[in-house]
Amino acid sequence: MSEATMEISLSVNGEQVARTVPVRQHLVDFLRTEMGLTGSHLGCEHGVCGACSVRVDGAVVRGCLMLAVQADGAEVVTVEGLTQTGEVADLQENFVNRNAMQCGYCTPGMLITASELLRDPKPVTRAEIRDHLSGNFCRCTGYHAIVDAVEMTLNKRLEEG
């Protein structure tokens, strides 16, 4: 079988791009190899670890469980885009100050996943934060510091309305 390809055009971090891609390529391989956006990581490529989490049309998804061709016409946001817009600057600052990462490999996925909890902030318990992050694997921190950082950010946002 020869390599089937398809033209796609999509918005990546606010920039409109068009590419011809192999139809079998998953979204994160596309972002990493075609777009040079290496912030999204591959940890398992079977949808368990969450390191590849990206935002597609406003919702966080596993980037390895979506084909690049399926993002045709979509708006994709990676951690680089999230950083650029400053949407989670407070969360990022708290991650740094609380040392909510060690090796940093899970961090982009954690931030993107947590951003969904922060977008429309509601009071939540630590257990609910843990539940929300339960699909993102971190081997380094033991999660405590990550929960702290998300909780601090959420409380601050709630306080500030």
């Binding site: 912030g39 951690v79 991650f95 090796c103 940093g104 961090t107």
Partner: peptide, 12 residues
Amino acid sequence: AAKRAVAGRGRY
């Protein structure tokens, strides 16, 4: 390194 990691600028 943490500042780099949160911006997705880690270099693995």
